[in-house]
């Protein structure tokens, strides 16, 4: 599987995502500039964390208009895996591939720490190596991570099992229904505020995020049929 990591102006977790895939998982991965228009030849695409366009206007609001986004949308429509973490998640909601929005944390502050999560749905292409309702701990590092959607949307997300990760124990940002990560209806687009790519090496304190990438990589073709 060949994976693209998109680099927007202001992306800064692109290295983290790339190295998790390249150095740790030995996957076939390449950086792709936001100025490119095509993702031909790639089987999956990942949107890294960071501050694309300085978070000016609204986190992710400008990145959604970059050249590469139509190609990302095309991949999502084709059922290929699309993954966004942190700013990547914010961009995915801004561009409409995922419902809802990420608001300023209710503390009004940036927060960087490791938080406990519950794997709510282990039937996705991203989570099949986790146990059902498994507790894991992943780092978060964001100022705008408070997930918001209207009640109807939230109910629909739950009914369709689109909520994949939930904050367990404490809610660090005020997300509704403790939502930390969701997929689209088809299940091939995952957005999450926590950083699994920061938890793939014991040297750095945790390998809890490793199985997310392995779930994706160890399935051969991960294309999701409609």
């Amino acid at each position: 599987m060949k994976i693209a990591v998109i680099v927007f102006p202001g992306s800064n977790c692109d290295v983290d995502l790339y190295e998790a895939l390249h150095s740790v998982c030995h996957a076939d991965v390449e950086y792709v500039s936001h100025k490119e228009k095509s993702l031909d030849g790639f089987d999956a695409v990942m949107l890294p964390g960071g501050f694309s366009y300085g978070d000016y206007l609204r986190a992710g609001a400008i990145a959604r208009f970059t050249n590469i986004m139509p190609a990302v949308i095309r991949m999502a429509k084709e059922g290929k895996p699309v993954f966004g973490t942190c700013n990547g998640f914010q961009i995915l909601t801004e561009v409409g591939l995922l419902p809802g929005a990420l608001k300023r944390n209710d503390s009004q502050k940036f927060v960087c720490k490791t938080v406990p999560l519950e794997v709510v749905n282990n039937q996705t292409i991203f989570t099949r190596q986790y146990k059902d309702h498994e507790r894991i701990a992943l780092p978060i590092a964001h100022a705008d991570g408070s997930y918001f959607a209207d009640e109807q949307t939230l109910d629909r997300l739950e009914e369709n099992h689109q909520v994949v990760f939930r904050y367990a124990e404490e809610n660090p940002n005020g997300s509704l229904r403790n939502i930390a990560g969701i997929t689209n209806e088809r299940g091939n687009v995952l957005g999450m505020m926590p950083h699994p790519e920061r938890a793939v090496e014991a040297l750095l304190g945790s390998t809890a995020g490793l199985r997310l990438f392995k779930s994706l990589l160890e399935t051969g073709s991960a294309k999701v049929e409609e």
Binding site: G49, F110, P139, A141, H195, R198, L204
Partner: peptide, 13 residues
């Protein structure tokens, strides 16, 4: 210090 990202670039031991 929780307001500082201390882990980005994934090399913080």
């Amino acid at each position: 210090y929780q307001q500082y990202d201390s882990q980005v670039r994934t090399s913080t031991v």
